[in-house]
């Protein structure tokens, strides 16, 4: 399932997304402590977090995550969005909490 298909299936907002919207999602990781995410998220994961700033974009790039999905109604700040566009990291946003979103993703990735 690609990032675009996932965004559609979850009915979440696409804050920004370029070519990488067609990337295949391989798994899912949830977490907000960036040092932990960097070490434990796998390449191609959809990453669920409430950290909407440029550091999350840098971490997504380094961990090679497929995209960032901001939960709990958190929005990516302007600097983060600029960096996400530059690095081609899709940023999705939802009002739903992390757990509910992850549960839906688990069903979709089965």
């Amino acid at each position: 399932m690609t990032v675009a298909e996932m965004a559609n299936a979850l009915s979440v907002t696409v804050r920004c997304g370029g070519d990488a919207m067609s990337r295949e999602i391989g798994g899912c990781y949830c977490g907000d402590l960036l040092s932990m995410v960097m070490g434990r998220a796998k390449a191609d994961d959809i990453w669920l977090t409430v950290m909407g700033n440029m550091n999350s974009v840098a971490v997504a790039t380094l961990a090679d995550a497929a995209c960032i999905l901001l939960c709990e109604g958190v929005e990516m700040d302007a600097e983060g969005e600029a960096k996400a566009l530059q690095q081609d990291v899709p940023v999705l946003q939802t009002e739903l909490p992390v757990y509910e979103t992850a549960a839906k993703i688990a069903a979709l990735l089965k």
Partner: peptide, 30 residues
Amino acid sequence: FTRAGEASGSVKKALRQLGIPAEVIRKVAI
């Protein structure tokens, strides 16, 4: 903080071009 990560991002790119294994690049980048 806006520029933190630029150096590691750039190294990551350079190592990829050199054909360094992905797992090694990941360790270096983190």
